[in-house]
Design a protein around this nucleic acid. Sequence first.
DNA 1: GAGTGGTCTAGACCACCGT
DNA 2: CGGTGGTCTAGACCACTCT
Lengths: 253, 253
Amino acid sequence: MGTTQLESVPEPKYWHLKTVLTEALDSEFSVGEILPNERDLAARFGVARATLRQALEQLELEGRLQRRRGVGTTVAPPRVGVAVGSEQHAWPGAADDAWQPVDCTTAVPPAGVADHLETDPDEQVHIVRRSRVTHGQPVAAELLYVPGSSVPALSAIDAPSGAARARAVLRELQHMELEGQAQSVELGSAGAADAKELDRLPGAPVLVVTTRFYAEGRTAAVSVATYRADTCRLTFGDSGRVEIHHDPERRAS
Amino acid sequence: MGTTQLESVPEPKYWHLKTVLTEALDSEFSVGEILPNERDLAARFGVARATLRQALEQLELEGRLQRRRGVGTTVAPPRVGVAVGSEQHAWPGAADDAWQPVDCTTAVPPAGVADHLETDPDEQVHIVRRSRVTHGQPVAAELLYVPGSSVPALSAIDAPSGAARARAVLRELQHMELEGQAQSVELGSAGAADAKELDRLPGAPVLVVTTRFYAEGRTAAVSVATYRADTCRLTFGDSGRVEIHHDPERRAS
DNA sequence: GAGTGGTCTAGACCACCGT
DNA sequence: CGGTGGTCTAGACCACTCT
């Protein structure tokens, strides 16, 4: 027992790799630069490609890298701050809110949404699909669920389908007085449809923002928005902005 | 070219596995139940263990499963809603805010935090460590950075270290008038220290909530809180609560 | 077609938990 | 101690993008 064990806590190789790569990214690479391919990198570090990939995956999760099949791995820019919650409540579609209506269908919402809306489990609602673009890149996809009772004056005739109908639904919403809204954020993975819209592979990590809009004493609409977790930093709160921070390892003790 | 291609878009095995497992979880398992071990499951589905693990990883990310080394894989309960942003701004430590002070040290903050606080890059600040527990489970770990100028009356004598000193710092904060706060949420991975406190392995996905507290016309304190992404749903907003929703695959079209 | 990242395999050993 | 999930290897093939 007299030997000083230098390797008493052997940290996993991929973890150490991640640390080394992080330092390299901070010092030797600039945003947009492309890294050597995975096979070369793995050989250079003397590990299997799967091990290297485990490190790259985490770095991508943390928004440090961007990987694209058929192209390569590049150094990602700092995350974009996107405003999600603000003190001034407003209906979606009001005074252009950074979202762009895409189309509108009518269908039965998922069970969880139906619970929020207090509609029958098999009652159809309007579903407005919108997308959010920042700096030319898609950052979020949204499904807005609006029961027919929230837009009674909506005429099925003047906008039968597509983006025009989406705008019609949003326009009708403004006629109600918004009494409040509640939001939640959780981690999810992109479904096939969202992945396509976000230009990612299915299963990519997303931040799911669920918003309930209250009007006339009930939940008048529900929005489920999925933001790219790799590129987005969601900002809430009243005053200024919250800046970037890159804290690879926080504190020693 | 006359053949109808049924397999024109062969989805990955792990993706299909995830779908099958999700349905099984919804119908055949109850919360807390333990699944067969990974080797058995892989054999049952006729895939390699690595492939099965890829599916399990995603399900854990979505909060459907909980895996613990040496124990097994269990069905996770629905995510806990934890209140993070509220309209009534209050200093940390006020009117017991669900956080428990752990200890307090003095050190130079990370560069990003120093930027927020507008302190010199090598100026030491008070660092209060707090933890948040819900239903007996640790859900978040926080580092609260307080520059000395925000707590001028703090005496180094009456609470030299530990939780007592942490409480002393929090007490002094209440003396300022809080003018506002701004928050951001982003995805991260747990460092060694946070992982230990959250009872997870290093690298586990976390939701990083950064809060700036404004007082006396400047940023008087910065809090960086890491929440377990697998078990937590962060709630913001003014009125009620946002309920659970499990939407494995959202919409077909 | 050449080169990239994404998926998959069939093993092996390790770290941890319970008994 | 036996059983679990966590790490790692050295290959193979596939899907995609660019030229």
